[in-house]
C-alpha cells in the first residue's frame, strides 16, 4: 500500500472508518483505489470523538473535504457513528481489505483489541466462512496489553522481547486472568523475562490457531489488525502453524481500507 500524491484529491473520494475498541483507523481512497491518506489514533472513550477527529484529519490532509462521495464505517463503534452512508461488519471489511493488498489470500487472521477472527475467503475475495473468539480476551490485543503490563514492558516492545527467548516457558492457560497469574508465578520462580514473554506469545498463538481450526487454515494467510505489528506473535503463529504468513505493510488499517473499498464500489462486491 502506498500513499498517493496528496494533490490528487480533485476527483471524488471514498472514506473507510474502522472504530475498534483500542484504536480508530481511517483510509481515504480516490476513484482508482489509490490511498490519498490514512490515519490511526487511540480510540479513547467510546471511539466516536476520536473517529470524528480522525476523519477531519484524513480529509484535511488530502484537501478532500468537499470531494467526499461516500463513507462506510466498520468496527465495534460502527452503529453509533453518525456520518456514514453504510455500516458493515469487520468480517467483510477485513476480508475486502486483505484481498486488495494480497489477491492470493484465502485466510485472514485479524487480531484486534477485543476480538480475533479467522476469515476464509474465496478466489474472488468473498467471505466463505469465519470464526471469532467469544466473550473472552484470550487471543486478543487486550491479552497482550495485560501481559506486557504484568511483565513491566511497553506493549510496543513486547514482541521483540519474546523473540530474544531461547527457552519459552509453558503457559497452559489461555484465560487472560489465569495466564497472568501463571506468568507472575513463573517470574517469581526466577524465569527470564523474555522466556515468559515468549511463553505468553505461544499461548495466544495457539489460541488463535484453535479458532482457525473451525474454518480451516488455507494458504495464503494474511495477518491483519494492530497485533500483526507484533513480530513475536507473528513468529509464534508461523512456528506453530508451519505456514508462511503475509503481514501487510500497514496491517492496522486493513479493515478501514476494506470499508473504503466498499464505499467506492458500493454493494457487497
Amino acid at each position: 500500500m502506498t500513499v498517493a500524491s496528496r494533490s490528487s484529491a480533485a476527483g471524488r473520494c471514498y472514506l473507510g472508518v474502522d472504530i475498534g475498541s483500542l484504536a480508530v483507523k481511517a483510509v481515504l481512497l480516490d476513484a482508482e483505489e489509490h490511498i490519498l491518506s490514512r490515519a490511526v489514533a487511540p480510540a479513547g472513550y467510546g471511539g466516536q470523538e476520536a473517529a470524528a477527529r480522525l476523519v477531519a484529519q484524513v480529509l484535511s490532509e488530502a484537501h478532500a473535504e468537499k470531494a467526499l462521495a461516500r463513507t462506510v464505517v466498520t468496527g465495534y463503534g460502527r452503529s453509533l457513528f453518525r456520518n456514514a452512508d453504510e455500516e458493515m461488519s469487520e468480517i467483510s471489511c477485513h476480508a475486502r481489505g486483505a484481498f486488495r493488498v494480497c489477491p492470493e489470500v484465502r485466510t485472514v487472521i485479524d487480531i484486534g483489541g477485543q476480538d480475533s477472527k479467522v476469515i476464509r475467503v474465496d478466489a474472488r475475495g468473498r467471505v466463505m466462512d469465519f470464526a471469532m473468539n467469544d466473550k473472552c480476551a484470550a487471543g486478543t490485543g487486550r491479552f497482550l496489553e495485560v501481559m506486557a503490563a504484568a511483565l513491566g514492558v511497553p506493549v510496543a516492545d513486547f514482541g521483540a522481547l519474546a523473540l530474544q527467548s531461547q527457552h519459552p516457558v509453558a503457559i497452559s492457560s489461555t484465560c487472560t486472568v489465569f495466564a497472568e497469574s501463571e506468568a507472575i508465578s513463573h517470574m517469581a520462580s526466577g524465569a527470564e523475562r523474555q522466556d515468559v514473554a515468549a511463553g505468553l506469545h505461544r499461548a495466544i498463538a495457539s489460541r488463535i490457531l484453535g479458532l482457525a481450526a473451525h474454518v480451516g487454515l488455507l494458504a495464503e494467510v494474511v495477518v491483519s489488525g494492530g497485533v500483526a505489528l507484533n513480530a513475536g506473535l507473528v513468529a509464534a503463529l508461523t512456528e506453530l502453524s508451519g505456514l508462511h504468513l503475509t503481514v501487510p505493510s500497514d496491517p492496522q488499517v486493513v479493515g478501514a481500507l476494506g470499508a473504503a473499498l466498499f464505499a467506492l464500489h458500493g454493494g457487497r462486491r
Binding site: I91, V127, M132, R268
Partner: peptide
C-alpha cells in the same frame, strides 16, 4: 454486541 457483529457478518456473507 458480539452477537450482533456475527449476525451482520453472516448476513453479509449470505448476500455476497
Amino acid at each position: 454486541e458480539p452477537i450482533r457483529t456475527r449476525i451482520q457478518a453472516f448476513i453479509e456473507t449470505l448476500e455476497a
